[in-house]
Design a protein around this nucleic acid. Sequence first.
DNA 1: CAGCTTTACTTACGCGCGTCGGTGACGCGC
DNA 2: GCGCGTCACCGACGCGCGTAAGTAAAGCTG
Lengths: 322, 322
Amino acid sequence: MTRPAKRPTSADVARAAGVSRATVSYVLNDRPGQSIPQETRHRILEAARRLDYRPHASARALAAGRSDIVLLAISALPIGPGISRLIEELDAALADNGLTLVTHLAGSRGRPLPDVCATVGASAVIGLEPFDDGTIEALHRAGAEVVLPVRDVAPAMNEIGRMQAEHLIERGHRRLGYAMPADPALIRMAEARLQGVTASCAAAELVPPVVLQVNLDDPAGVVTGWTARKVTAVCAYNDEIAIAVLAGMRDQGLSAPADLAVIGADDIPTARFAGPPLTTVCFDAHEVGRRRAETIAAGLTGDQRHPLPAQPAPRLIERSST
Amino acid sequence: MTRPAKRPTSADVARAAGVSRATVSYVLNDRPGQSIPQETRHRILEAARRLDYRPHASARALAAGRSDIVLLAISALPIGPGISRLIEELDAALADNGLTLVTHLAGSRGRPLPDVCATVGASAVIGLEPFDDGTIEALHRAGAEVVLPVRDVAPAMNEIGRMQAEHLIERGHRRLGYAMPADPALIRMAEARLQGVTASCAAAELVPPVVLQVNLDDPAGVVTGWTARKVTAVCAYNDEIAIAVLAGMRDQGLSAPADLAVIGADDIPTARFAGPPLTTVCFDAHEVGRRRAETIAAGLTGDQRHPLPAQPAPRLIERSST
DNA sequence: CAGCTTTACTTACGCGCGTCGGTGACGCGC
DNA sequence: GCGCGTCACCGACGCGCGTAAGTAAAGCTG
């Protein structure tokens, strides 16, 4: 599988089109302020196509001092379908802006993020939750021009919780529970979501939610924790946790929503096949991806027109677990 | 968030250490065949550390014609925790070999893979299922030296199906069904898995499996398709499909494994909370990741010692749906 | 002390590209 | 027919790095 097969360079294109390398460069990057007749332009484009020419990224980056590469850093294990849809959207939206997205799943034993950033020569790094200041500093030193998010993800997580709680309250529930994940990698995000729930309870003059951690090896355990305290509905950190709770209830002969209503978050594919089908709350991945991409592109081109569009509102998907 | 903050170059290190750039390069890449006294070596290393010097990837790649970047292309949506564990392993194992892994989640609307490969300057591209010849050719032209897998994943997928079927046959089932996904992106992999099932049936002198496509909007439909034909157990392409089938059965008042046994594949987290908990088959991500990484590293260094270690065998996780 | 090898470096080139500053040909006004 | 302003294009530099080839000094041999 090792084949050298020299890639064509811009010099090859120039030769094939009978012009100089400079002209090729001007045409391919259609640089304004150059007067190049249609015919020459066409000849060059055609030659490039015929040779399947693709600019050598390293050389371009070296010369231009910029790389068109956006690195998405995903910190821990919890990569579910929600995230992967967001990634797809992000990818598409960045591509529209001439940027290329690559992802780094940072296992604890892999390369440190700044190293990866430097290795691929990324000019932007984005994450799913805010980086700490030390990391940001290191990333800048590693060559990243823009790093996101800095502090803008918590409010969105908040919204998720708020919407879960409001749905339940509307349904007439007065005592809510909150199902926390046990995975330490998730607690930051979970706490942000929980905050939204707590806020909604306060706004409706209800007692704060009864927070319980779900042990994935014994989901039945938490259920009694809630029923014993007269909780009639629980918001789960995400759909996986919600499905675990539902399983715990089945084990005890309980059923949703009669004995305990359950609402999830993220709308994973198996949510609709849960018993009963899970009501859930999620973001429109398409929208989120697009807005993020635009923020990045704006940051990279120094184009500060847009006032950094905010996150869209989450959406409620009603099924029968509430 | 835009800060130029010029990165230090090897010339800066050279100046700081009072030597020439070449010497710096020799020391930092500890190139054999050069005689450099400990003291100088130390001075250079120290200077590099003090300046937080990291070689500019693009320049290095340009000069060396090689990039240390391995691109993992994930073609479609089905990115579950199984895969993300595999990625982590791969990342760690490649890092041990001095390689950096980045992933590209290729949505259909994002950049075409060869473009991405060229943009990041990857010198190896690996995927989860075999690429077709056109793609391989394109990737090579885009600069990839080694591309995997070429033809070596189908047997592994085969194994999945074989193990599913054998488990069911052992349990006494004589007429099996196969649950195909509807997503066209998955059919290649699905067909590979199905082949394993078919082979096992043949080996046990049973009729071939009754293959039905699962419509995620009406999973109950397929169930009658099987029961009408006296199928007593079905192998699902993966856990998601299996869970959908289980949901379809519930809708009809049927239950697993009494009315129809169901076995999945991949062991996604919600599998254990399905009703009933799903028996499934999966790979040991750790092993797969490590072996793949070694194959890549060997291919890149031209080191042909290892006889390309094969895939490990899949593992059966017995729960109660069979 | 001439002649050789070894040590410890340095100088110089080129990777593929973007881009600044030309340059020659041509048309136009006077 | 001379100056001036386009038009269409080219030469050459430098980005940061790896590396082949060179060199000056020191050490050894006979």
